[in-house]
Design a protein around this nucleic acid. Structure first.
Lengths: 336, 336
DNA sequence: TGCAATCGCTAAAACGGTTTAGTGAATCGA
DNA sequence: TCGATTCACTAAACCGTTTTAGCGATTGCA
């Protein structure tokens, strides 16, 4: 069964496609179409189950009403809620969001970015990976609406929204230091992106201020070997260095860390205190609960959308700044 | 800066759009275009950073190379991995997947379905909600490729892939009965969809076979009031009925249940044994680990994509059946 | 040498809408 | 009564591709 087009309706009611288009787009009175014809068209459209071909509309109007969202990993709870909030917010403005995971893979990320471009998305919301610089610059040069999230490129002038990484780590470290921990380790990854650098620098800074702890204790987990090997790296690191507290730089590192700690048989917080970046159901439900620095996910998403909408010209209230850092929430639980 | 179109390239090299199109689509030799012109076009396209307008291509060819995926809730780990696998599999066949969450909301679901139709997706992968019947039938009538997942409509003849719900619950119940539990409760929701009915029926069936337990003990959680109220319902139910084991019908019910159990102060498995449908990081990491019936998520995703590709005519190997049930994995942990 | 076949490429229609500039008929004002 | 408006619509261009049919020039064959 063929889908019914606007022309089919036009033929059916004996009017021209233009007239039908006006009516279906609510411009009937503006174009002073008679109520009689208007109702006839509306009724026929409904009866025939007309659904406009959005592809044709997009081609003609140059607007797809689609936003492209690229996150690191949609199955990670942080990015999942980010995506969810963005989707909901975008809907308010009449935009649909298509999202994909870069898996922090540069090649994949660039490909996805190009695909979004080819699909003519109206705006981009991106958690960039290393290697995307050129394509991001291209988007900027084309003056397409764009907001980076979670991280950004220091060398490229774009809008971005991220958590205040330095402030968050600082808060967490102060908490640990105040609690009297003297050998605090920092477990992170080397993604090459700025947000991880900011977190690590804040740790280094905190250690350098500390009277008790002179030496940094940093593990950069290498994910190349997969989940199990990552856990092994953490296990080995903890066994060898024997810290009294550990700060995980992301939620997935924290989860892997909990597995390591469990495997080693350490008890939290007696043997080892734990703080983690990002909150998560697991940290809340864990026994003991894990102290975290919760990112203001909804606020990040909302801010990003608002900046983007401003660029798209859909926003009444102008935001002052388009490079934003939002404070994290410190949630103290039993792990420290 | 304006984006460069195929026509721009044509003008630049002094050829016709058709010729350029042939070359860019690798039909140069087939259309016996001279290598000289071919290379010139290719070079110019690259130099100008040409990216085909996929919207125009779609309009012309009638193919968007997009699959629409509707899940219940993308931030739920089960659906997240489902989506992820589907995305990866679809990519193999040259399809991009756009996904959205119905939130089990009939109105929202129908709207999303229509949006997918209007966006001209080439195929549908859907976890349907109550109220979608008509729109699903419409898709069937239009002979559009469609595979339902996780559930289906008994009255509508469509392809579907789901876990063997009855078999899974049966296995879980047998495990509990064999372990000697005599007052096994079943906590579920009333979504009106078949997969939940299948699970509940299997529980009822197991109880009716049981020598020890004569009475069903079922709670249907009402989600209307939100998370906290849902937890309260479970708490009240457990306090009042005092079961020695509880079977949660979905992973999110299990998570809420763990919070209830924790709030009441019951200890697992001494006071209460726990089995849950769906696996999850939380159940694995929980102390004690939670016994689960793990859905074969990847297999479900792969099967669904293959059936869909068959409908799209992209598959070499024909599948025999297009209505599939896959067995769940029983994973015994310390909670039972 | 003359006709057909081949070569290398192009014109133009089509996809399904939106939008600008009109068009003929009815109504209006003077 | 006649020119100007208004009314209720419509014709046609256009968005950026793909694809079918075909065109003039060259080559092949007898």
């Amino acid at each position: 069964m063929k889908r019914v087009s606007l022309k089919d309706i036009a033929k059916m009611v004996g009017a021209s496609p233009s007239t039908v288009s006006f009516i279906l787009n609510g411009k009937a009175s503006q174009m002073r179409i008679s109520d009689e014809l208007k109702n006839k068209v509306l009724a026929t459209a409904k009866k025939m189950g007309y659904q406009p071909n959005q592809v044709a509309v997009s081609l003609r109007t140059g607007q797809t009403k689609i936003l492209g969202l690229l996150v690191e990993d949609i199955s990670n709870s942080f990015f999942a809620s980010l995506a969810k909030t963005i989707e909901l917010e975008a809907e308010e403005f009449g935009y649909k969001v298509v999202y994909s995971s870069t898996e922090n893979n540069s090649k994949r990320g660039v490909e996805l970015l190009r695909m979004l471009t080819q699909r003519q998305v109206d705006g981009y919301l991106i958690t960039p990976t290393v290697g995307m610089e050129e394509d991001i610059e291209m988007i900027v040069r084309h003056k397409k609406p764009l907001v980076l999230m979670d991280r950004y490129f220091p060398g490229i002038d774009t809008a971005f929204v991220q958590v205040d990484n330095a402030g968050a780590v600082k808060k967490g470290m102060e908490h640990l230091v105040n609690k009297g921990y003297k050998k605090i380790a920092f477990i992170t990854i080397d993604s090459g992106m700025i947000q991880m650098k900011q977190r690590e620098e804040a740790y280094t800074e905190a250690i350098s201020r500390s009277a008790e702890q002179k030496k940094k204790l940093v593990l950069k987990v290498n994910f190349a070997g997969g989940r199990e090997l990552a856990i092994d790296q953490i296990t080995e690191f903890l066994k060898k260095n024997n810290p009294d507290a550990v700060f995980f730089a992301t939620n997935y590192l924290g989860i892997l860390g909990l597995e390591s700690i469990r495997a080693i048989g350490l008890s939290i917080p007696t043997d080892l205190a734990v703080v983690c970046f990002d909150d998560n159901d697991i940290f809340r439900l864990h026994l003991p609960g894990i102290t975290v620095l919760q990112q203001p996910v909804e606020a990040i998403a909302r801010t990003a959308i608002h900046i983007l909408m401003q660029q798209l010209g859909n926003n009444k209230i102008a935001l002052k700044k388009n490079q934003v850092q939002l404070a994290a929430n410190f949630i103290s639980r039993e792990s420290t």
